[in-house]
């Protein structure tokens, strides 16, 4: 009996396919993701990218919405501080989301599940590495149910 339970637990764990929403700025990180593509690097299909003009366009509302609608992780990727196409946009991102990450942690979303990364257009490698690492840690932590809408059902 206990063996069966364990098996069940294992199979349900294997079924856990995390969903990660990545907000990428048009000038650096989106191009970095393109470079990961042109260099044929591999990262898991669980990561899905939304293009924004600048990382500072990302509102905390979008992040909350993603967690609410079933995302297990959210990542915001922008140009390196100092390299912003709009000169100062990513500084705002950094400040806003440093505070916001604290709030998320307080409500029970682990640090590993919400990240801000600086990925330049030349860092295809970094893009793939960051995504692979993020997926690894989310796989270990399991689904994010804390902010999830109760009515949400994963459609396969």
């Amino acid at each position: 009996m206990s063996l069966k339970l364990e098996e069940k637990a294992i199979s349900s764990k294997q079924q856990f396919e995390p969903l990660i929403v990545a907000f990428c700025c048009n000038w650096c990180s989106y191009a970095g993701a393109d470079l990961a593509g042109t260099s044929r690097l591999n990262y898991p299909a669980n990561i899905k990218i939304i293009k924004v003009p600048c990382s500072c366009r990302v509102s905390p509302n979008f992040v909350l919405r993603a967690f609410q609608r079933g995302a297990d992780g959210v990542i915001i990727a922008g140009c390196h501080p100092g390299d912003c196409h709009y000169s100062t946009g990513n500084y705002f991102t950094r400040r806003r989301f440093t505070l916001f990450a604290n709030l998320l942690e307080y409500v029970g979303i682990e640090r590993e599940k919400f990240k801000i990364e600086w990925i330049s257009a030349a860092e295809g490698n970094k893009f793939a590495t960051v995504m692979n690492e993020m997926l690894d840690s989310i796989n270990k932590l399991g689904p994010s149910r804390k902010l999830r809408d109760g009515r949400w059902i994963r459609q396969q």
Partner: peptide, 10 residues
């Protein structure tokens, strides 16, 4: 953007 988030989390 919200619509995109919703669609990706379909």
């Amino acid at each position: 953007i919200t619509a995109e988030v919703d669609a990706l989390c379909h």
